[in-house]
């Protein structure tokens, strides 16, 4: 089994009124952290609900661990830990009661269930609130309980939908660190509209826009889609001597010099290393000292925006593109 999750032409139309997902072909490899990104309303939660068998696809299919997912596929859901966006729990239950309940419905015997729920409550920092009713919990506490519940059955696959939604900075960092840690031993599918989060933690990424999967691949593939790169060099030396050196050299890239800051703009037509080595030679020739090199562009964000703009600008021609796109998306229906 190469992929933990596979969808084929997955489509969801709600009541003949709203197309939430359109022919998505998703393949999540085993191991690592897979990010599902898209603006609000792009179809991320719909996709996840179909992966879990909570929503029935209008067309297409979902395979989890190589088997079709259905509303009653308990043996598959036993291998999944799900964290919904802003999770809600039975209000009268306590964290201990709820995790015990989750353990019971997962078929865990008491001798496994009790130590595990204690360990998880400690791990998510809810030990002091373990006997309080869930109805008084803050967003952060509710999310942490959801995290504990998703780990209760020690799943092979974690599906976390917008896990950082509504969290304070501390909770946000805690959750991202936890995902990174868990990604070392489990396959994780994490959805978010926050690209910065996905960029920090994911090895693979898929982008949804208006119900269409417009990209699926590694983060490296994603970065390679940027049209240009820019660097800022912080320097110590005589700016005029450097300006003269740069002007007299044969470098073709665009540059801007402002006192001790040199900005370089690379196009993808020529190798970045060639242009950079020419600039470094000029710096040496001008007897300047290189203090720091900073990236001016966020390549992932650029690529994301580029893909969204490209998708939206296609308009009617989208339906005429019958060949698979060269963006890592294979054979999407109607693409």
């Amino acid at each position: 089994m190469d992929h933990v999750i596979e969808t084929h032409n997955l489509t969801k139309i709600y009541g003949d009124k709203y197309i939430a997902l359109n022919g998505a072909n998703l393949a999540v490899p085993q191991g690592g952290i897979f990010g599902l990104v898209g603006p609000n309303g792009a179809g991320k939660t719909t996709t996840i609900r179909m992966l879990l068998g909570l929503h029935k696809p209008t067309a297409g299919s979902v395979l989890l661990f190589g088997e079709p997912m259905t509303p009653n596929a308990v043996h598959l859901r036993r291998r999944i830990g799900f964290l919904p966006t802003n999770p809600r729990f039975p209000k009268e239950m306590t964290p201990i009661g709820y995790l015990d309940f989750v353990g019971k419905i997962s078929g865990l015997p008491s001798e496994v269930r009790k130590p595990r729920l204690a360990m998880l409550l400690r791990a998510v920092g809810l030990l002091s609130a373990a006997s309080q009713k869930v109805k008084g919990f803050s967003t952060g506490m509710t999310t942490r309980l959801g995290i504990a519940a998703s780990l209760m059955n020690d799943p092979d696959l974690l599906i976390w939908d917008e896990p950082t939604a509504g969290l304070d900075p501390e909770g946000h960092k805690y959750t991202l660190d936890l995902i990174r840690e868990l990604g070392e031993t489990k396959t994780i599918l994490v959805s978010s509209h926050n690209l910065a989060d996905i960029k920090r933690i994911c090895s693979h990424i898929a982008i949804l826009s208006d119900g269409r999967l417009i990209f699926s691949g590694t983060m490296r593939d994603m970065r390679s889609l940027t049209r240009s790169s820019a660097l800022e060099l912080e320097l110590d030396g005589d700016p005029e001597r450097l300006r003269a050196a740069l002007t007299s050299s044969a470098i073709s890239l665009r540059w801007e010099l402002d006192r001790q800051s040199l900005k370089l703009y690379f196009s993808h037509d020529e190798p970045m290393a060639v242009g950079l080595s020419q600039v470094l030679q000029c710096i040496v020739a001008a007897d300047a000292r290189l203090l720091a090199v900073n990236s001016l562009h966020d390549e992932v964000v650029d690529a994301f925006i580029h893909l969204l703009e490209e998708e939206r600008s296609h308009g009617f021609s989208r339906i005429l593109r019958l060949e698979p796109e060269n963006h890592g998306v294979s054979g999407a229906a109607g693409s």
Binding site: L54, P71, N72, P87, F89, P90, I105, N153
Partner: peptide
């Protein structure tokens, strides 16, 4: 009465709808 909770907290786990 559990419509908003049941999918997230119960039926996403190892439970059949029956």
């Amino acid at each position: 009465s559990e419509a908003g909770v049941v999918a997230d907290s119960i039926l996403s786990k190892a439970v059949t709808r029956y």
